[in-house]
């Protein structure tokens, strides 16, 4: 393997991992506060279709991204209303949201199928993009990928180093105690859900405006579910979410590249590789059960009623 090929693989790995990273970061914040939203796939698709329609109609890709985030927030608000406001079962509500989002996006987008769009083009950062191996991967991407780097840094800082991180964690670990301390549990949870919606919407926009600039029904093809699984297998730790997303991306790309080179491994086995590799690595990292339990939000998925 020559350097160029490795550099291309690393570049594709980041592109492939970015939508997973965006969704998983949003869901991580959401789950940290104790709310499990399985509606990621639906929010992502709705974001993708709204982003595409807006960008196509106005010619502004950024306006598309913005409204995609708002579209994600809109569906997330619906989830918050039902699951938090009415204390409905979060798993059922999230599943319903995914099914709703798939159908709604197909309905809204039916007139926009088969329309070509020039999406976000790679934006090379001078000098840095010439660094061998990692230059192409880190500094020759499109702006949404750079944005995902920035959001990752911001969320990592917020979760690990800021007071906000402690508030999120307190609400997720023990909402009653948090409430007794005077924290607005319901407001924190709602905002976390809306943030998750915005991130899923942005991931959708990444698909329809940068990764494959077009709208097609079901174009997320299960990425929302993979991101959900990543959060669990990363045992709710933000650095591992990044690792998992890129690992999944890397294995997905390797399985395609290996076939092109002519390495004869059964295709079905190769297709399993991204899932297996990601699970194995993250499980090995989390094999210390006691420490893993420390990171799992205790009240995850449990409805909470205020007024104690």
């Amino acid at each position: 393997m020559d350097l160029d090929l490795i550099s291309n693989i690393l570049y594709a790995m980041v592109r492939c991992g970015t939508p997973l990273l965006l969704v998983a970061l949003g869901e991580l914040v959401c789950e940290k506060t104790g709310v499990l939203n399985l509606g990621q796939e639906g929010m992502m698709l709705f974001g993708a279709v709204i982003g595409f329609i807006v960008a196509f109609s106005t010619g502004s890709l950024w306006l598309g991204v913005l409204l995609a985030c708002l579209a994600g927030i809109l569906l997330a608000a619906l989830f918050a209303l039902v699951a938090l406001g009415c204390q409905a079962n979060q798993v059922a509500t999230g599943l319903a949201l995914t099914i709703f989002g798939i159908g709604l996006s197909a309905f809204v987008g039916s007139a926009w199928v088969g329309k070509p769009l020039t999406g976000f083009e790679p934006l090379a950062i001078p000098l840095l993009s010439d660094i061998p191996l990692i230059g192409h991967m880190l500094f020759n991407q499109d702006v949404l990928v750079y944005l995902s780097f920035a959001l990752f840094a911001l969320i990592t800082w917020a979760l690990l180093k800021s007071r906000l991180g402690l508030i999120l964690q307190a609400v997720g670990e023990n909402p009653n105690a948090a409430s007794a301390m005077g924290l607005p549990v319901m407001r924190v949870r709602t905002l976390a859900v809306l943030f998750g919606g915005a991130m899923a919407g942005m991931a959708g926009a990444y698909l329809s405006l940068a990764y494959t600039p077009m709208w097609a029904q079901n174009m997320s093809a299960g990425r929302g579910w993979i991101a959900l699984a990543l959060v669990v297998f990363a045992s709710w730790r933000v650095l591992r979410v990044l690792l998992g997303a890129y690992l999944f991306g890397l294995a997905s790309i390797l399985h395609l590249v290996a076939q092109g080179i002519g390495i004869s491994i059964p295709a079905n086995l190769l297709a399993m590789l991204p899932y297996v590799a990601t699970i194995v690595v993250l499980v090995l990292l989390s094999r210390d059960a006691v420490r893993t339990r420390l990171y799992a939000p205790v009240s995850l998925g449990q409805p909470w009623r205020g007024g104690h």
Partner: peptide
């Protein structure tokens, strides 16, 4: 799977 199809095309073109 548009994303995967695009990745496959990129992998082939890279080669």
């Amino acid at each position: 799977d548009p994303g995967k199809e695009a990745d496959a095309a990129n992998a082939l073109i890279d080669q």
